[in-house]
Amino acid sequence: MTRETLISLAIVLALLAIPLWATAAGETFYITLATRMAILALAAVGLNIALGLGGLVSFGHAAFFGIGGYAAGILASHAFNMEPLPFGLPGTNAMPVIWIVAIVASGLVALAIGAISLRTAGVYFIMITLAFAQMIFYFAISWPAYGGEDGLSIFVRNQFPGVNTLNGLSFFFVCFTLLIASLGLFSLLRASRFGAALQAARQNEQRLATVGIAPYRIRLAAFVISAMVTGLAGALFADLNRFVSPSMLSWHMSGELIVLIILGGVGRLAGPVAGAMLYVAFEYFLGGITERWQLFLGLLLLAVVLFARGGVVGLLAGKARHG
């Protein structure tokens, strides 16, 4: 077992320990906090596939996070009000169905956005992904059927067969399991031929072309997979807050996901988990002391970028593999 594997395991176990401790201590609020960490980590694991492995700085991943959220919100509200969706399809409050819808919808939108954005590179790619996300953001704001600017409430948390999702700890385990699955997916991708080609594309496109691989297709596939994972996280986030609003689609959210990854370690397996834990802890503990907590987050980010380019994982596990 390498040092990085051990560190990754420790980080994931630390996340698992929070709600267990909170349950024992009767501090149920911390279960919600840990669930928030797990969901943001899941969203960032998704972005880490594009950003960490493919070097694709997507500044529009909030679009997929929000689409996942709206998938949960819209399906649940139709089920709650017993109104059919267009084409007479029923709404649903079953999480597995909602997840599939969230994943498919995010994937399809990513396919369209990626097909256009990936023809550009560098700062243009950043700007074009941002532009697409903003289009979706303004669309959600001006869509009164689903709450427009005010957002959409989910009155009762959606159901998962055999699990009481209203129980905070149970819902945490649902999110945590999906996070572990996403980490498994990330490892598999990184170790596969696809992952090697994706990382190679980031290093040198022309060299990759001379071995017969089209960088564009590899990147598009990575972008779509990345969006699907982030979309799934969005559906869980909506269920956690029992509320969806356009803020999930805003560019702040995209920035937040990038910040999580940089804090934790770009391209590192447990980077997004460490980043999400640190971010949420900062938001909560410093946020309780001062409204200007983001100033301190900024300083921390500055320190990481200047002195610890591999993020928290890089700091603990040694030389950053990707940089």
């Binding site: 992952g195 090697a196 990382q199 190679a200 290093q203 040198n204 022309q206 060299r207 990759l208 072309a209 001379t210 071995v211 017969g212 691989i213 089209a214 960088p215 593999r321 990707h322 940089g323």
Partner: peptide, 26 residues
């Protein structure tokens, strides 16, 4: 270029250009 490579032209470029941040196996 990638189509030409797929037709069956394998290039070893000047200056030993590997992918530095991938392992030998990768």
């Amino acid at each position: 270029a990638f189509r030409v490579a797929r037709l069956g032209i394998g290039l070893v470029p000047e200056g030993r250009r590997c992918f530095p941040n991938l392992t030998v196996r990768e």
